Amino acid sequence: MERFFLALETASFKIYTSISQLPANWDKIAVSNAFLQTSYLKVLEESAPVNMQCFYIGIFENSELIGVALAQYLNLNRLESFGERDNCLKTVIRNFVFKNFASHALFLGNNMITGQNGYVFNKEIDFKHISELLLQCADAISLYFRKQKTNIHIVSFKDFYQHCAVELKKHNFSNVYEFNTQPNMIFELDPNWKTSNDYVASFSKKYRDQFKRAQKKCEEIEVRELRFDEIVSNEERIYDLYHHVAKNAPFNTFFLSKNHFSMFKKQLQDQFVLCGYFLNGKLVGFHTLLINGNVLETYFLGYDNHIQKEKMLYLNMLYNMTKYGIENQFKKIIFGRTALEIKSSIGAQPVMMSGFIYHSNSFINKYINRIFKRLEPTLEWQQRHPFKD
């Protein structure tokens, strides 16, 4: 795509539709975030959800690359299901609205993960110019689709920590609707924990008993990290387990492609971990992790629902991911924004994040706050406090 100039006299941005077009020093700029490095972007390019198209944004000062960003277009008309768990009138109405008034959605950021992973710079950029950049990028990509006779309905700027959201609202985002959904569950690991025994010892009796009960339930389960060839040979089963969990989520905007996990392992190798859970030699569950510097990012998982209930499989997955984080001395684990209560029971804390959204129809956008509040499912949950005082 053509180059666009920002309000800054010396700044511009260029939008790319293919990894092969990216500047040679892209990864030097993206070094601090694995979700913006070309190894991960290749995973998206070669195994993105069928209803997704990715755009890669280079930000330049004069001719020097100083920042990189990601945008994703989603065609919700190509989605098999928005989510099957909540079968009620509100869900039916929500799905009708999304199909007819929000089926073409543009996300500035990464809609597949939780966290502030949309852009990174190699120098300090003030929020005034970041707000200008994000809005101008959205306009440029929307124009790209209009030329192809597709109108973008919804534009969303995804996942900002609260201090960033506050700063953005002081500038060009002041009139863009800010929303908060479920919090991101983040586990700041105690640097004094060297083994999982140290972690378990810090529990109060109630949660130490919970840990022991979960471990006992899972005694027959063999857990092991899968090599690339094992992921390939189990690909159908892995996808079936993932798909079962995904379609029963309250709301979806995409489903992964069947080769997503093998492509991930091929591209990121030791940076990507897929652990399989086997019962009598049969794969009954899996979880995935991405190593992102000193942060451990949880990714997608899947399980056989009958086995999960009987063996407390999901809770054991959370314990195992925590064990991996402790034993490999990560600073924190990003657990994402689902199953909040059970994640808090293993030590994760809720961190509120904001998004911004607007509708291309000015009349609908005028009432976006009321519409969004009515369509977004409310969630009541009780935070658990597992550690000794």
Results as ranks from 00 to 15, higher is better:
residue 329 Q to L: 03
residue 56 Y to L: 10
residue 127 F to I: 00
residue 329 Q to F: 08
residue 72 Q to W: 09
residue 344 S to N: 10
residue 258 K to E: 14
residue 90 K to W: 02
residue 316 N to Q: 15
residue 132 E to G: 14
residue 26 W to C: 08
residue 4 F to S: 15
residue 292 N to E: 07
residue 115 G to M: 09
residue 382 Q to P: 11
residue 295 V to P: 14
residue 67 G to C: 11
residue 244 H to S: 02
residue 132 E to H: 11
residue 265 K to Q: 15
residue 109 G to K: 10
residue 387 F to P: 09
residue 328 N to Y: 12
residue 62 N to Q: 15
residue 176 V to I: 01
residue 383 Q to C: 11
residue 124 E to S: 10
residue 272 F to S: 13
residue 179 F to W: 11
residue 239 Y to P: 05
residue 359 H to M: 14
residue 168 L to A: 04
residue 7 A to M: 10
residue 317 M to D: 05
residue 263 M to L: 09
residue 257 S to H: 10
residue 265 K to R: 14
residue 197 N to A: 04
residue 309 K to Q: 12
residue 106 L to I: 06
residue 191 P to E: 03
residue 242 Y to Q: 05
residue 200 V to P: 00
residue 23 P to M: 10
residue 198 D to W: 00
residue 383 Q to M: 13
residue 47 S to E: 07
residue 229 D to N: 05
residue 257 S to V: 08
residue 282 K to R: 13
residue 8 L to A: 13
residue 149 K to P: 07
residue 158 K to W: 09
residue 228 F to P: 00
residue 204 S to F: 01
residue 248 N to T: 04
residue 56 Y to N: 07
residue 236 E to M: 03
residue 140 A to V: 06
residue 100 N to K: 11
residue 277 Y to P: 07
residue 108 L to P: 13
residue 15 I to F: 15
residue 150 T to P: 03
residue 211 F to Y: 02
residue 105 A to F: 12
residue 310 E to C: 06
residue 106 L to D: 04
residue 48 A to H: 12
residue 56 Y to Q: 09
residue 96 F to I: 02
residue 316 N to V: 15
residue 298 T to P: 00
residue 196 S to G: 07
residue 284 V to W: 12
residue 203 F to W: 00
residue 157 F to L: 07
residue 310 E to L: 11
residue 108 L to Y: 15
residue 262 S to I: 08
residue 69 A to Q: 15
residue 116 Q to T: 06
residue 377 P to S: 13
residue 248 N to D: 06
residue 243 H to G: 04
residue 123 K to C: 09
residue 23 P to K: 14
residue 96 F to H: 04
residue 258 K to L: 15
residue 66 I to H: 13
residue 2 E to H: 14
residue 218 C to I: 00
residue 311 K to Q: 08
residue 300 F to L: 13
residue 234 N to G: 01
residue 290 L to V: 14
residue 258 K to F: 10
residue 210 Q to I: 00
residue 62 N to W: 11
residue 248 N to V: 00
residue 133 L to R: 05
residue 389 D to H: 12
residue 133 L to V: 06
residue 285 G to K: 03
residue 283 L to V: 10
residue 30 A to W: 01
residue 194 K to E: 01
residue 339 A to M: 02
residue 23 P to T: 13
residue 128 K to M: 08
residue 82 F to E: 04
residue 231 I to G: 02
residue 290 L to G: 14
residue 115 G to H: 07
residue 298 T to K: 01
residue 26 W to E: 08
residue 5 F to M: 11
residue 147 K to H: 08
residue 73 Y to R: 13
residue 193 W to Q: 00
residue 49 P to A: 15
residue 72 Q to A: 12
residue 103 S to M: 03
residue 212 K to E: 03
residue 195 T to K: 01
residue 251 F to V: 01
residue 373 K to N: 15
residue 260 H to S: 11
residue 158 K to H: 07
residue 59 I to E: 06
residue 146 R to E: 15
residue 111 N to A: 09
residue 103 S to C: 10
residue 308 Q to V: 08
residue 209 D to A: 01
residue 119 Y to I: 14
residue 155 V to P: 06
residue 57 I to S: 11
residue 369 N to G: 14
residue 86 D to A: 01
residue 221 I to L: 04
residue 340 L to Y: 09
residue 137 C to P: 00
residue 254 F to T: 03
residue 236 E to I: 05
